[in-house]
Write a protein that binds this DNA or RNA. Sequence first.
DNA 1: TAAGATTTGTTCGTATGTATC
DNA 2: GGATACATACGAACAAATCTT
Lengths: 253, 253
Amino acid sequence: MDGSTTPPAKPKRSRPVQVADQIKQWVVERDLKKGDKLPNESAMIELFSVSKGTVREALRILEAQGLIVTKTGPGGGSIVGEVSANRARSLLANYFYFQDLSVADIYQMRRALEPELAASLAGTLTEDQIAELQELAERYPEPAKSAEEEKEQHIASLVFHARLSEFAENKLLGFVIGFMANILTDMTVYRQLYDPPNVVLWSKGREHQLALVEALRAGQAEEARRIMASHMQVAEELMKVQEAHLLRRFMGD
Amino acid sequence: MDGSTTPPAKPKRSRPVQVADQIKQWVVERDLKKGDKLPNESAMIELFSVSKGTVREALRILEAQGLIVTKTGPGGGSIVGEVSANRARSLLANYFYFQDLSVADIYQMRRALEPELAASLAGTLTEDQIAELQELAERYPEPAKSAEEEKEQHIASLVFHARLSEFAENKLLGFVIGFMANILTDMTVYRQLYDPPNVVLWSKGREHQLALVEALRAGQAEEARRIMASHMQVAEELMKVQEAHLLRRFMGD
DNA sequence: TAAGATTTGTTCGTATGTATC
DNA sequence: GGATACATACGAACAAATCTT
């Protein structure tokens, strides 16, 4: 006649993840920063009253999420470790492994974001950064002679965008664009080759990248935005001829 | 005089993560799907020639990434588990824990993406979905009387956007928008309250949401885009008065 | 170079918990 | 309730890595 029929809902997390949570809490409470040391294994065994195996499983969990790094030897142990962009990308890619994205989906995002990035980057880059971008854009001065070569050029173009994304002051914007460049690179690498190189699109793409570098150097934000928007259209055409759906990942670091 | 001075680069991953990689490979090779069973512990011990403890640590790694789910008892063991959106958000939030995003950063993204989402949703929603959105938009018909109440309303508004993002056919677009709604919710929850409620902004926000629902129902894509763009401007003003920088997370599930 | 100290890495044996039949 | 099959957890021992002297 009471709520006893409803066993309040039992989360019942296994011991190792409980301990992992406790360790996180321990870290947050003390507001530990990037390189700070965590207690060593034996200390944690006492601290949480669990066995060595359990502590180790908990540490693996945190390590898998990129939250800690563990070293052996004297002065070793676990320390707080900043989650790398690479790791974050891998973890997120595992999610989209199950979601079946299409090329059209990715380009809907790119059309909205890449011009924004270009505009916000205008006039903020150092000479070294500009020079690096220019070098990337100037590679492959000749149109591709084979499908294999076109694949290479396409990947190089994605490197250009990935590098650009790393310069973003807006880390969220930069991450999302870099993530997409990653996905597209994977799709290109594993792609079947059956389309002949498209000289017109190659030529437009190259012109766009070079013009973009100039606009960035000159600090012309709206011009950079316009060029990038146009560039996205061309890039989308190039990709659309590939398989529409595909995104198979599950690994990587 | 040869390469012997360059010990080919030593990845040197610890045994458990090696085993975790091997398990992933085992799964990918067989193209296992969501509920499919993995070998049980003792089988893996033989399969990879490692001890029980090592296998368990490897399993915890995969579990932490959301790739497998483990159950006890007969017929139990580990199965392939689809990474949930929630887990992906948590994992990604851990990355941005170290990146120090600003409100301005997030709104630069929202301005670019939310209108796009609104436009692509016009005319694609079911009556049930429209009704749910309408109900969310109609809550709080009165302006907030206290800072506390305004906080509640703001969170409710973010629920509206989060729900909208779940309807997106473009999973990447939906995920990113949902992720931002999550972040903003956290920021709002932990926010200090010292600003008086702003009646004008409340009124505009409410009108926008209601008008948006109408445009979505009528299938007017460009109208929906326009309304959302306008709505983002208002929402940004509301948020800008808060602390500019903040994003402290490290946990959650 | 070598030895020793420190800390994680790995294994094994055993016992307990839990869900299915 | 009992038997079975599986994960879960503990503890002790030994191996490997790395820093210090």
